[in-house]
């Protein structure tokens, strides 16, 4: 008889002890999101409107095409696709570089593993603006890279102000976020599974393809998520390393905000959020079926 009330009291205590976190989460996560949505669907006099949303899809501007002719394009669609393209390229490069790195680290002696992970994390302790400035000085036409190339008589490379420079910046900034989740999955992997695969007829490539990679997919998914999402909404890197020539969706949000178009800035942020949520849900479905279904 006394059990039920006590359990109820325990549950109440548990809920109560969560209260500070709940308040924090509501105040700093839920409320801002509600405000973003609220601003996205209102005009300057706070009346409901879908104008901001439609503006994102329909606004046009005139640009100079490559052949010199004037072209009319949908402004924000162009910006969005450019952001997506650069983010996807950066993510793919991060994955292609990050997976082997994580794999090699996870196979090393425990001491080496610790050292390597520390080295990968050290740049994350520096402010990312400073890291971006560092890349400016490296990539500039009169920067470190070109000095080095000149010293080696290899000519000049014009990188700053190109899409390549923006991609380099993004890859550098988000690389650790790709390595760490993949590494933690690989390091925890049961070595007996790898031995079993060898035992059952797999060479090294087979073991990697049929056991290690499928089992590390959860790490790959979180790595991809952690790189793709910040790089799609990044804004500072493109301004500094792209010389402002590659206006990205993050720059658009910042620009509208600075110009005091809060409602339109909120609308762009809202649309981006919805697209990312859908993309993540699709990715999760895909990997779930992959992990369960096997090769």
């Amino acid at each position: 008889m006394s059990r039920a009330p006590r359990e109820r009291r325990n549950a109440r205590v548990a809920r109560l002890s969560l209260a500070p976190y709940s308040v924090w989460a509501v105040l700093f996560i839920v409320v801002p999101l509600v405000f973003v949505a609220y601003y996205a669907f209102t005009d300057n006099s706070m009346r409901f409107t879908t104008e901001n949303i439609t503006k994102f899809f329909t606004a046009t501007s005139t640009v100079l095409g490559e052949d010199g002719s004037q072209q009319v394009v949908r402004t924000y669609m162009v910006i969005f696709w450019r952001s997506l393209k650069l983010a996807v390229i950066s993510t793919v490069i991060c994955l292609l570089l990050g997976y082997p790195t994580a794999y090699i680290i996870a196979r090393a002696a425990p001491r080496t593993q610790k050292t390597a992970i520390t080295f990968i994390m050290i740049p994350m302790w520096m402010n990312f603006l400073i890291r971006t400035y560092a890349w400016m000085t490296i990539l500039q036409d009169t920067g470190l890279l070109n000095h080095l190339l000149a010293a080696l008589h290899l000519g000049q490379a014009h990188i700053i102000g190109t899409e390549a420079a923006v991609v380099i910046g993004m890859v550098y900034d988000y690389f650790p976020y790709m390595i760490l989740p993949i590494y933690s999955v690989l390091a925890k992997m049961d070595t007996r599974l790898i031995e079993a695969a060898h035992d059952l007829g797999c060479n090294n490539v087979g073991v990697l393809r049929r056991v290690i990679f499928p089992l590390s997919l959860p790490g790959v998914v979180s790595g991809v998520t952690m790189v793709l999402i910040p790089s799609i909404s990044t804004f500072y890197i493109s301004q500094k390393l792209g010389n402002g020539k590659f206006f990205l969706i993050g720059d658009a949000i910042e620009g509208q905000y600075v110009a005091n178009n809060l409602h339109f800035a909120a609308a762009i942020a809202f649309i981006l959020m919805v697209i990312l949520l859908i993309a993540m849900a699709l990715m999760k479905r895909f990997t779930d079926s992959c992990v369960r279904g096997g090769v």
């Binding site: 049961d190 007996r192 089992l215």
Partner: peptide
């Protein structure tokens, strides 16, 4: 080999 605690592929 039949491994100790089997080492079945969880995926």
């Amino acid at each position: 080999t039949v491994f100790q605690r089997y080492a079945l592929f969880p995926h």
